[in-house]
Design a protein around this nucleic acid. Structure first.
Length: 136
DNA sequence: GCCAACGTTGGC
DNA sequence: GCCAACGTTGGC
């Protein structure tokens, strides 16, 4: 049973378009324990929303975990986790943070509850709600 | 082991 | 640019 996630990136540093251009990206540099636990729990085939923080403040696409269980190559101590992701589909309409906060069914999601968490889990129900919203 | 001070992240 | 939330550090 695959799980769902949400991964934040500042588009200035790494945007959806950057990922599409490269075909596959490694998600590293996470230095938060809760986010790391989420990264470490990801398995190949899981899917994740790609969220633009700071600029945009919206979910722009869906990525698939292409390789899980990696150690962060940018971390000399080898304690932190990383995964590889591939772009799967761009949302027809981005789902903004504003919309997410206005949706009662999403009030409990990790993104809303702990806004600074860079890698959050999305429940199957929340996943469906967001996908539905992206269809406009 | 507690807690105040400080730094960072991210929304507004 | 400000501020709230959260994590980390360091003195005790």
């Amino acid at each position: 049973m695959s799980r769902h996630w949400l991964m934040k990136s500042e588009p200035d540093a790494y945007s959806w378009d950057d990922l599409v251009e490269q075909g596959e990206g490694i998600w590293d540099g996470v230095r938060n324990h809760r986010a790391k636990n989420n990264l470490a729990a990801m398995q190949e085939g899981d899917t994740a929303f790609f969220y633009h923080s700071n600029i945009g403040l919206e979910i722009v696409g869906v990525v698939e975990i292409s390789e899980g269980g990696l150690t962060d190559p940018t971390d000399p101590t080898g304690k932190w986790a990383a995964v590889k992701v591939k772009p799967k589909q761009k949302l027809r309409h981005p789902v903004t943070l504003k919309q997410i906060k206005a949706e009662p069914r999403l009030a409990d999601c990790e993104l809303v509850r702990q806004s600074r968490l860079s890698v959050a889990e999305i429940t199957p129900a929340e996943w469906e709600v967001i996908l539905e919203m992206s269809k406009g």
